[in-house]
Nucleic acid binder design. Structure first.
Length: 225
DNA sequence: GCGACAG
DNA sequence: ATCTTGTCGC
């Protein structure tokens, strides 16, 4: 497992992404939906943007029951720069994941994997550092373009960077905006979309993300109070 | 040079 | 991400 290194500036951060990108594994199908464990990770920031809380919530993939959860509180040491999000969140996210008492199985995180200017978003980075299969599910199309998917749950359309399909817009609920799924590590795009759809039975976002979001926000309130 | 820009 | 009133809809 590779150790996280905090770059001194944006140029070094981009160089790290260009270097680690070669370690992304794209030829594995990933675990079948509905089996094993699935882990959601998310972070929340305080008003001053200097405290960050990460949460990891492990669910049984079939029942969606909570199996384990962990949080970590850290300090933000890198500014938000589109394309360099991982350097803000990675240290605290890794700490939360390492605090779990079970194997996380498949990880679902906010943001993107291959759908990234250098094809190495947060989900790819997290996958390479942990070795775990990772999916990226974003709420916005970032800098990419797409045609609206059909109106029904399960309808999809390609997320395009020019001619390249870097991810997929997935309609998880009728009457709501799609989410944007991309491959992080050790999973296919088809399977990533199938997992996302299965985990978003009731709401727009996957249950893993919703649980992790609620936990890190609650923990932030308690840590800030 | 200007606009766009995951969280 | 987070700040935030009112407002639309179930």
């Amino acid at each position: 497992m590779t150790t996280f290194h905090m770059p001194a500036d944006e140029a070094e951060a981009r160089a790290i992404q260009d270097s680690l990108r070669a370690r992304v594994v794209l030829d594995e199908p990933g675990p079948p939906p509905g089996t094993g464990l699935v882990t959601g990770v998310d972070v929340a920031y305080d008003e001053k943007k200097d405290v960050v809380v990460a949460a990891a919530v492990v669910l049984d993939a079939e029942t969606l029951d909570v199996v384990d959860e962990a949080t970590a509180v850290g300090t933000v040491t890198f500014p938000y720069v589109p394309g360099l999000l991982a350097f803000r969140e990675m240290p605290t996210v890794l700490e939360a994941l390492e605090s779990l008492t079970v194997d996380p199985g498949l990880v679902i995180c906010d943001g993107y994997g291959l759908a990234h200017p250098r094809r190495f978003g947060l989900a790819s980075h997290l996958g390479v550092l942990t070795g775990l299969p990772v999916i990226g599910v974003g709420k916005n199309p970032f800098t990419f373009h797409y045609e609206a998917p059909g109106p029904l749950r399960g309808d999809t359309s390609p997320l395009l960077d020019g001619e390249d399909e870097v991810g997929r817009a997935v309609r998880t609920q009728e009457g709501t905006k799609p989410v944007f799924v991309s491959v992080g590590h050790r999973i296919s795009l088809d399977n990533a979309c199938a997992h996302t759809l299965r985990l978003a039975r009731r709401f727009r976002q996957p249950e893993t993300t919703r649980r992790a979001d609620a936990l890190c926000r609650q923990t932030l309130r308690e840590a800030t109070a």
